[in-house]
Amino acid sequence: MTDLSGTVALVTGASRGVGRGIAIELGTAGATVYVTGRSVADGTEGLPGTVTETAELVTERGGEGVAVRCDHTVDADVEALFDRIERRQGRLDLLVNNVWGGYEAYDETFDAPFWEQPLDRWDAMFDAGVRAHFSASRLAVPLLLASDTGLIVATSSGDGEKYRGSVPYDVSKTAVERLGKATAHELREHGVASVVVQPGFTRTERVVATFEAAGEPVPEETHSPAYVGRAVVALAGDPAVMERSGDVHAVGDLAREYDFTDSDGSQPPAFELDTEPL
């Protein structure tokens, strides 16, 4: 088990799903984890999960969970978040850019041709996704520079250069990965690493609810959010992580390189899209 005792981490968008999985695994490794999201007392979109619950789970696992209500599309919220971390911690060792608003208002038009897509879906994916990652990264850098092990990890999705099935989704996720590469380029001389991870088909609360509503079983090829969390823990505990800076790694590939498994002991391979490269 990687020991991250003394590590100060921030996981954005951690009310549920991948963000919660990452936060809990960081807590299991002993880290202090700030978890953000809009859900504090009640879930949003009819889905369970709040930052308060996630922070409690982090603490139960042996870390220290700190819940912070933050809408990452509101600059004042984000600035207040980093001011709080600076006042209380004086540094930040790990930023996980996971917040994502692109699945809100999910419906049958998600995979429609781009000319039939609602424009607000593009806005959600970029404002509560790409812009939110950029905003958090720029505010985090002064705190990451105060750390001996500064690291930014962004979550994306995909499979190489293959088309992701929806123009807004494909372009926004590609932008997240390019942001990770570009920030790595500028941060390298300052000793801060930036890495992008691509989860596979993840059993988030949203995915489970979608299949249950359709009366279908959740596909066997899915993995838990903890699998992604263990990838982030492995990266955060790797003294040579700077050698990976600027890279995009599938969680399944990292599992084999770092020799970790999902919570059920399995080791699902890297996700493969059934589409052609662009």
Rank of each mutant, 00 (worst) to 15 (best):
V171W: 00
T202A: 11
E177R: 10
L187D: 02
E108A: 15
L179D: 02
Q198N: 15
A136Y: 00
Y103P: 03
E189F: 07
L187C: 06
F126T: 06
L151V: 07
A146N: 06
P142T: 06
V192N: 00
A128P: 12
P168Y: 03
G150Q: 00
R121N: 02
Q198S: 14
S194Q: 02
A132R: 00
A184L: 05
H133A: 14
F126I: 09
R138M: 12
S147C: 04
I152L: 13
D107T: 11
A128G: 10
G160I: 03
E116I: 08
W122Y: 07
G102L: 01
L119K: 13
V196Y: 03
L143P: 07
R178Q: 14
G129P: 08
A136R: 01
K181R: 15
G158Y: 02
P168N: 03
V141W: 04
G191Q: 10
A182K: 01
H185S: 13
V153I: 04
A175M: 00
F114L: 14
P168S: 11
A112K: 07
A124E: 09
A193W: 07
R131G: 03
W100Q: 11
L187N: 02
G160A: 04
V153Y: 00
A175F: 06
G180F: 02
V195G: 01
L151A: 14
S172N: 09
L145H: 09
Y169S: 01
R138W: 09
H185Q: 13
A184R: 12
V99S: 05
Q117G: 11
G180H: 03
Y106F: 15
V153P: 03
G191I: 04
V153C: 08
Y106L: 15
V130L: 13
L139Y: 10
G180D: 05
D159G: 12
A154C: 12
W115A: 12
V195D: 02
D107W: 08
P142W: 02
D120G: 04
F126W: 15
L144G: 04
A136D: 11
V99Q: 00
W122R: 04
E189I: 03
L139I: 10
Y169C: 01
H185M: 11
V196E: 00
V171Q: 03
Y163H: 11
